[in-house]
Design a protein around this nucleic acid. Structure first.
Lengths: 208, 208
DNA sequence: TAGATTGTTAATCGATTAACAATC
DNA sequence: TAGATTGTTAATCGATTAACAATC
């Protein structure tokens, strides 16, 4: 099977966003050089990326159909059918994600939240019911969710992951700024703001 | 000057977090093999990463001083002196970031927010005053901030960036899920949740 | 001393870029 | 047809890994 590097996978949503804009503007076909000029990638890389997921070849002198590209990328990324998730840790960031409307369009449906705070348990946030963490073991397995979005403080993240995995989670989307250990076969993807900020700071400081 | 790859830069906050935990547990020295066992990187890579920023060599048979490592990484990442920022777009995610307490420890001080919503303008969020976007041109240059944290919807992100750069911003921390074009010399670092989710989904779907 | 761990140098690996013939 | 753009194959580049002598 074809292998996709992390960098490559990360580019597809960016292509998709761009193609959707083109589509709205009535553009029907797009070529690699034009994409390259707009997104700042090399045209060879774009060609490889699009080839890797397309069933049809591009057409010399024309490029590819924008509508077809949108469909291809959405299918490839799994936007066409939903995966279910719960969110653990409904603090500021967790609540923001519960309210984020676009996940549904990206094939991720968050069905419920978990927290320990009495202010939150029993309430709805972003239309999702918030359960107490004590209920996790009994409730989570009934929700049909396989993905856990982790928004707890770093010092609770590993414990939360362990519990989630024990109760059947197969993928963890981790927003805590720490490394997590998980059993083989469990997918862990971390969004680390500290790492991102480190890149920004270093670039900024090495400018002169 | 030494060059740091993006991946490498992203690892330092993760090392730092781990070393701080060790420090709290009273561990005074740590060796590459032990770090490797815990964080899942190779020990060679860890040695290279730490060598790249340390003034002193590690000690055979012992490793490195945890306290010294913490100090070294914090200095390297610029955590010891603050850079000032404003946040544009105080929706759910923007508000969450305004309330995030850890940025100060990471050398980033957000001094104010900007939004267009009458519900938010004039209020405080996370202790920061929220100005109307119409005031950006006059207020931003007075705040001493060089960094703009962008949390506006994707279709306004490029406009917001342009305005920010025009008024003197030199770095953009972009949370909108789209590619942004910026003049040469302007640092743009994007946190793209869609890209992160794409990696997670693909790994999950290719497990079988 | 013996052995664990270091730093350095070389080998490998993978991703990106370049070159170019094929094609509409 | 001519020329832009494609897909493929080879070259380059950079990062990670492996090997190993140096050292406390």
């Amino acid at each position: 099977m074809k292998v996709f590097s992390k960098n490559q996978l990360q580019r597809y949503p960016i292509y998709l966003k761009f193609f959707k804009e083109l589509y709205e503007d009535g553009v029907t076909e797009i070529s690699s050089p034009k994409i390259a000029a707009e997104l700042g990638y090399s045209e060879e890389q774009i060609r490889k990326d699009l080839q890797a997921i397309s069933s049809e070849p591009g057409r010399p002198k024309k490029g590819r159909s924008v509508a077809k590209l949108i469909e291809t990328i959405e299918s490839f990324l799994g936007y066409r059918d939903s995966a279910y998730a719960v969110l653990v840790g409904c603090g500021h960031l967790g609540s923001a994600l519960l309210n984020y409307p676009n996940f549904d369009d990206m094939g991720l449906t968050i069905v419920a939240g978990f927290d320990v705070s009495p202010n939150k348990v029993g309430r709805d946030i972003g239309g999702k019911h918030i359960y107490h963490m004590d209920e996790f073991a009994t409730v989570f397995p009934t929700l049909g969710a396989k993905i856990v979005v982790l928004c707890v403080p770093a010092d609770h993240a590993q414990d939360a992951l362990n519990m989630a995995v024990e109760k059947g989670a197969v993928a963890i989307w981790n927003f805590a700024p720490c490394h997590l250990n998980a059993p083989t076969g469990i997918v862990v993807e971390t969004v680390n703001l500290a790492s991102s900020l480190a890149v920004l700071s270093h670039r900024l400081n090495s400018k002169r």
